[in-house]
Amino acid sequence: MAPLVYYLPNVTDVTSVTPYNHAIAVADLATESTLLTYPAAPPAAVEAAFDRVVVLRSGLPPVRAWRASRIADRLLDAEDGVYLTTFHYAPALSGYLSDRRWVLDVYDDPMQYVYNRDSRVQPITVRGLLSLLDRADRAVHTVHPSTPRTFSGDVRFAANGADVEGLEPSFDVGDTLRLVHASSHDAGLAVTLEALAGLEAGARLDVYGDVPERHAARADALGVTNDVTFHGPTDHGRVRRAVERADVGLCLLGDRPDWRYAHPIRIGEFLAAGTVPLASDLPGVRDLTRDAGVLVSPTSIAVESALARLADCADLAAQKRRARERAEYIPWHEERRWFARQVLGLDQYPS
């Protein structure tokens, strides 16, 4: 075991997201643990897991990075201390500035800065970030191992998912197919609306998250307004209850390089809720769902065809049970513990 400092910004109260669980996992194994975060204190469960929590105050990323690196160097022993950071700018810069062993938590692809078209970020800045990340002593990646983009000279991998204990599936099937889109990212939503417009069997779609208003206008233009409810930003607990009630969960990502090898957390939640994932056929998604999901090309024709088959499926309840069984088969708690062991250099897989 070893003492650890983890620089994790913006810890949300969504208990299933990857960094939330990584934080609790590493704090549980470390002999002494400190969480550095910004701009506010973390949720109570995360704060309680650490021996101390420091909220960084400066609004300037370079200043936060420097202060964080000094805190890590002061708290950690040069011989066995571990400084864990996420891949974001200020945490990564602080890892580089620190004199302690620097381990990266790559729970998402840093290239999202480019593909999300963040106007504040220029490609040359991202190239600098990627070069910086490669200086880490070790990087644990929560993606499919076939990803071509890895960092550091000591590359490790971990899996992703959602605890089955937190979701209670309902395996009943009604007369109308119940669909759920549970993400503030609107990828695949336009395709889904077009598929609904052509679906003879009919379906009900609940959309959760802060999606652009153009989708409501598009639903109206397609004549499916009565089949779609836009709930807007919603408490995560309520979203989970909606996922439990749904028959099909939508995760229709485009074949972007930063999504191709990802393990989407919503897929893990769909499986745990006994909700059949209708998702893009990408390596990371395929690895999570195996035969428990319906994987398609994210086009309106392919999605409409898949929905028609699901609406006419005589054993939909059995498919929902298969989804839950897949979630129960994956040892999420062990996977998270394995992540923590790799961070702390305890590399033998627990028996």
Rank of each mutant, 00 (worst) to 15 (best):
R214L: 11
L222D: 06
D206N: 10
A195M: 11
A216I: 01
D210P: 00
R214P: 00
V228M: 08
V224S: 11
E200F: 04
A187G: 15
P212I: 12
H215D: 07
T229H: 02
D235C: 05
G188R: 08
D210N: 13
A197H: 08
A201E: 15
N226Q: 13
G198H: 06
E194A: 14
L199E: 05
E200M: 02
E194Y: 03
T234R: 01
F230G: 04
A216P: 04
V211G: 01
A217W: 00
D206S: 15
L193W: 06
G223M: 09
H231T: 01
R218I: 04
V211L: 09
G188A: 11
G223W: 00
R218V: 01
A217Y: 00
D206W: 11
R214M: 08
L222E: 00
A195G: 13
D220G: 11
L199D: 01
E194I: 07
A217T: 10
E194Q: 13
L199T: 07
T234F: 03
T234Y: 04
A197I: 06
T225F: 04
G188E: 10
T229E: 14
G223H: 04
V224T: 07
A187N: 09
L205G: 14
T192L: 15
L193N: 05
N226T: 14
E194W: 00
L196N: 14
T225R: 14
G232I: 06
R218T: 10
G198M: 08
A187P: 04
L222A: 07
V228T: 04
A201M: 06
P233Y: 04
L222I: 09
A203G: 14
A195K: 11
D220N: 06
G188W: 03
A219T: 02
